[in-house]
């Protein structure tokens, strides 16, 4: 099975203003697609539409050639979305946070896998502290540990580099590239400059919503 997320004639209006119009996208496995644009240009909205959270748009979405409406269940089983808010509970420890996500993904929770995932994002030794006592970057890392914990082919990441230090950014970039090389697909918004690689594509949003793909 190949991965393919398509959008045809996508348009979204917010407060009498078109964020983007006539946006055609064709995202396949093995690609990192970076959505660019100034603040307020609709990057997060586009990601929410593409991850099936917003229904308030025009145009059509297709997952593996079938309309999103019918393919929604299969789509959700392949999706890992990390939003603006990391979705990490301050009162729970990183281990407990991850246990919930692991169970939601339909896997039986195993502590060894969670410890390995936390260790991999540099949080070894912080497993049992309430996440509220961790720094913003560390909380973001807890959320990012899900990338390794629950393997999904399609990653939709909204500003994943926020609050992450320089070493972490490099590691995350490497992880994105490795994911694309192994056949996965990454859709990401960020203001960081991602090191160019052959997997990287750009989608630019801006005033008037011209889609300047190249």
């Amino acid at each position: 099975m190949t991965l393919r997320l398509q959008a045809r004639g996508l348009a979204c209006e917010r407060d009498d203003r078109w964020l983007f119009e006539d946006l055609d996208l064709d995202i396949r496995g093995g690609e990192i697609v970076r959505v660019e644009g100034p603040n307020g240009s609709g990057k997060t909205t586009l990601l929410k539409i593409l991850s099936g959270q917003l229904a308030d748009y025009r145009g059509e979405l297709f997952w593996n050639e079938s309309p999103m409406r019918q393919a929604r269940q299969a789509f959700l089983e392949n999706l890992l979305y990390l939003g603006h808010a990391p979705g990490v509970k301050a009162a729970l420890t990183p281990l407990e946070n991850l246990a919930w996500y692991q169970a939601l993904a339909g896997e039986s929770p195993t502590e060894a896998a969670r410890l390995a995932a936390l260790d991999a994002v540099g949080l070894a030794g912080f497993e049992d502290l309430p996440a509220g006592q961790l720094s913003a970057g560390q909380q973001r890392r807890v959320a990012l540990a899900r990338l390794a914990l629950t393997p999904r082919p399609l990653w939709v990441l909204d500003e994943p580099f926020t609050a992450i230090d320089r070493d972490g950014v490099a590691a995350l970039e490497a992880q994105l590239v490795a994911h694309a090389r192994s056949g996965g697909c990454v859709l990401v918004t960020t203001h960081h400059d991602i090191t160019a690689s052959q997997e990287l594509r750009h989608v630019r949003l801006g005033r008037g919503g011209r889609d300047a793909e190249h």
């Binding site: 991999a120 393997p151 490795a178």
Partner: peptide
């Protein structure tokens, strides 16, 4: 880095 191998 953990294995991020994906089997779609």
């Amino acid at each position: 880095m953990p294995s991020t191998e994906v089997r779609p």
